[in-house]
Amino acid sequence: MPRIALATESRFDPVPAKLAIKDLSKAFGGRAGVTAIDNLSLEVRAGEFVSIVGPSGCGKSSLIRIVAGLDAEFEGDVHLAHANPGRLLTAMVFQEQSNFPWMTVRENVSYGLRMIGRLDAEGRKRVTEYIAKVGLARFENAYPHQLSGGMRQRASVARAFAADPEILLMDEPFGALDEQNKVLLHDELIRIWEETRKTVLFITHSIDEALVLSDRVVVMSARPGRIKDAFEVPFERPRSVMAVKADPRYGQLFKRVWDALRDEVLRTRCGEERGGE
């Protein structure tokens, strides 16, 4: 029964975690096809920021699309605990430019709330608030083509937060940005997240990004994707990017995560040299 079950309407036992994934498998191209995810299990507690780090093509994006409800073809169980059915359960920040080009920044950030019928006075206040929080107040009437890549991703982040979902899904949202913009956006995300403490599942290929942002870093294996290892991130909150990087534990933890990831990256490289799978 490969379906996403909401805890509020579930025939399963009450789920202790906010997000519980059990024995999830995903294959592309039928039975003889490629296995993208193989028996993956993962739990994310309420209010926890979890990053998934893995080599390219390990099924990270497939995983988050399944959780987001964008892909219903999988095996296994995905449980999401919906506390308030009147509220949006999940919102997603996409890797690529996903602001509607035909809407202004303000219209884009309002979109989620407008579509779930919650763009009332309070909703509009949230929109204004989040546009200001990501530093786009002066650009709220600008169209996406007038913005830089970093500003567009800021608008995407604001759109997801403004919709006030219970779980926030982020699929390599800063993957296409330059290093300097990334540092600024990381600090902004940390600040906003620490204010809201939403449950976050964050996909990235950057160990650095995962350590700076998360409470827990989960390493995924090369295809077929499985959980290889997980690391608690000890840095105190409130955090800042520079404080984390100056912490001596940062280098040690970076090395431990890299040691877990290294073999997997090498495996994907061998795979490529042999001409794919």
């Binding site: 409800g69 964008l70 996903s98 509607f100 579509m115």
Partner: peptide, 11 residues
């Protein structure tokens, strides 16, 4: 991706 955005908001 624009269809995906709409779907995530249950449009």
């Amino acid at each position: 991706v624009y269809f995906d955005v709409a779907r995530t908001f249950g449009v």
